[in-house]
Amino acid sequence: MLKVESLVAGYGNIKVLHQISIEVGKGELVAVLGANGAGKTTLLKTISGLIKASAGTVRFDNADITRYPAEKIVGAGISHVPEGRNVFARSTVLVNLEMGAFLRQDKAGVKNDIEKYLAMFPILGERHAQLAGTLSGGEQQMLAIARGLMSRPKLLLLDEPSMGLAPFLVNEIMKIIKELHREGISILLIEQNVHKALKVTQRAYVMELGQIRRHGKSMELLESDVIQKSYLGEKQNPKRRA
């Protein structure tokens, strides 16, 4: 479904991504892990057309979308939920959701989807008339995800949806991600919370300094020594927890 090959991108003269290749199959839930500054956000931005690639290709459903402008990529079925809860602060929850469907023409379908996601995220249902900027951090994150879903994506790009959230809310978000996956949406998830990410995803890539260092089945990575040492530390050691 998504096939990124030897992607090179960055900001101005600074190269951040060096020959990145990743793949997300239809209906797959895949994680990209990595330390701060590894280039995870840059990778998502390049896939969704917010940054132009300087080399390499991004293919989606067999079309070469590398040079597509961002709005055409949304139209093609990729939705990017950016890092850091970029909700439209001075608009209501409902208007935020409607904005997510900006490119859609089917009014009835949009209405149905709003109802669907307000039911899926009950907290948003209760607060549908509230200004998005006055929601709590967790609620804003839910809204950002729901809004991203409003374009009816085939592939959802999630950039650290659990950032800065309390453990309870992190679990809540992970549950939602699993639920979306069950509905058949392909998801590329970026997470700092390595342990949780490896638990929900099927496969994962580990990024370091703009390159893919490792990839494999999430369960296997979870067991692997390198990951244990460099990312999970002692506190989050799954064996100790279990």
Binding site: G75, N86, F88
Partner: peptide, 17 residues
């Protein structure tokens, strides 16, 4: 709608298409 979205958050507006 689009203009307001741009004012509120340009990056998010872009990612809405």
């Amino acid at each position: 709608r689009a203009l307001i979205a741009i004012r509120e958050d340009e990056l998010a507006a872009k990612s809405m298409g």
